[in-house]
């Protein structure tokens, strides 16, 4: 069984700025499709900085780019955005909000893959 990491989704200043610039800009796309891991965790998983990875959570999965950063071992950091909507659970336990942080995920190298478009065109009206 693959090692499970704790995914810690959060906000950042850059992400907040980009929300006001536009969520379909390349800068916003780059921010929300990049995860940060501890260098030792990346080495163990066979991931190089800048490589595409497949992140699998209990509720869904997605393709992200991975870079190393100052983060505790066993944890994955990501900015909130449309890609995290696919990983987030939807059970609110009677509180009205699902758990927005601390999901257990598995991370696999996915060289050559590209995170899908997360802009407004990624979801179409279906009625």
């Amino acid at each position: 069984m693959a090692r499970r990491y704790l995914m810690n989704a959060a906000r950042s200043t850059k992400q907040g700025q980009q929300i006001n610039v536009g969520k379909d800009t390349p800068e916003y796309q780059a921010l929300v499709t990049t995860i940060v891991m501890h260098p030792d965790d990346m080495r163990e998983a066979g991931i190089e900085s800048g490589m595409a990875v497949r992140v699998v959570a209990d509720n869904g999965e997605g393709i992200f780019y991975c870079k190393d950063g100052k983060i505790p071992q066993g944890m994955v950091f990501v900015n909130y955005g449309p890609p995290t909507c696919r990983l987030m659970g939807y059970v609110t336990d009677g509180t009205g909000m699902p758990q927005s942080k601390g999901w257990e995920v598995e991370v696999f190298p996915a060289p050559g893959q590209v995170p899908p478009l997360v802009g407004p065109d990624s979801v179409k009206p279906q009625y």
Binding site: K23, N59, G60, Y80, G81, P82, C85, R86, M88, G89, Y90, P98, P120, V123, K124, P125, Q126, Y127
Partner: peptide, 17 residues
Amino acid sequence: GATMPQPAIEHLARTPT
């Protein structure tokens, strides 16, 4: 559409919003 869980987003897309 950019913040809620995917099943909620899909329901917004299925119904008039």
